[in-house]
């Protein structure tokens, strides 16, 4: 068996038994269950859950991944004193952290949603899409956390940057977009807004999720442009590919830094 797979197996066992992962599952389960109880319709509950997922999932992924990597630094040195290559260790670590976290996301959100969708089969496709986006967002945020922790040696500074990344992608970005929208005519915004969306994984995920609801029609002319682009098959594929790039590119960069740095 590949060394990375062996490392991932024990890493994921360690991560899965952590208290915080259990708290995370319970939190997601509680949020999903509460919204399902408040809304009679599963699709409406899903729409309500979008904002929660877009805030909580990247925040947890970024913080959990960064904290875990800084905490594991001494043990990683010990592993690298064995006949283990840095590439294998890095791959094993990523799989060992990201997969249990993705599993927790599926368990916490999926269990109540799938049960609800079984009673309301029309919502099944929406639930599947919702869970897929939540998982991809988890993997992307763990990638960004790995990049942060290998690029910044100091733990406190690294944690600060992780929070800043989340803040920029989920809060500051919206502010910039609102200012742009209020100062520029909508026609001039179409293309830049599309590009900006693809440059922000949280926004790409948001658009991918919103497009399945009629709510997009409320977004006016730009909303129509978005609907035309992301609502079609090509747009969805482009959005998913962009999100995949947000997993792969930071990870490759992080691995490159990890392979070259002093430990």
């Amino acid at each position: 068996m590949n060394v990375a797979v062996r490392i991932a197996r024990y890493e994921s066992r360690d991560v899965s038994r952590g208290r915080w992962l259990v708290v995370y599952v319970v939190l997601l389960f509680g949020l999903a269950q509460t919204l399902l109880a408040l809304e009679a319709d599963t699709t409406r509950a899903l729409a309500g859950l979008i904002n929660v997922v877009l805030i909580v999932v990247p925040l947890v992924g970024l913080l959990f991944g960064t904290l875990h990597m800084y905490g594991a630094r001494d043990f990683n040195r010990m592993l690298l004193a064995q006949p283990v290559g840095r590439r294998e260790l890095f791959n094993g670590l990523y799989a060992g952290v990201a997969l249990p976290l993705a599993g927790a996301t599926i368990l916490g959100l999926g269990l109540p949603l799938v049960v609800a969708a079984l009673r309301d089969p029309s919502a099944l496709a929406g639930v599947a899409r919702f869970l897929a986006v939540a998982v991809v967002l988890t993997l992307a945020s763990v990638s960004l956390s790995f990049l942060t922790s290998v690029a910044i040696r100091d733990r406190a500074a690294g944690m600060g940057v992780a929070v800043l990344i989340w803040l920029s992608l989920s809060v500051l970005y919206d502010g910039v977009l609102i200012v742009a929208a209020s100062t520029l005519p909508s026609a001039a915004l179409e293309r830049p807004a599309l590009i900006m969306t693809l440059l922000n994984p949280i926004d790409t995920a948001r658009v991918l999720l919103l497009m399945q609801f009629d709510g997009a029609a409320l977004m006016g002319y730009t909303g129509a442009v978005f609907r035309n682009f992301f609502g079609g098959a090509t747009g969805s594929v482009v959005a998913f590919l962009t999100l995949t790039a947000w997993i792969v590119l930071p990870l490759l960069l992080a691995r490159r830094i990890f392979r070259r740095s002093d430990l």
Binding site: D14, L80, A81, P83
Partner: peptide, 23 residues
């Protein structure tokens, strides 16, 4: 070199051992 195979013959005791808490 970067090839880790030479470390098969090395036993290492770091100064401050740190292990995964939940294993």
């Amino acid at each position: 070199s970067r090839d880790p195979v030479y470390r098969e013959r090395i036993g290492y005791m770091p100064q401050q051992p740190a292990f995964p808490d939940n294993l």
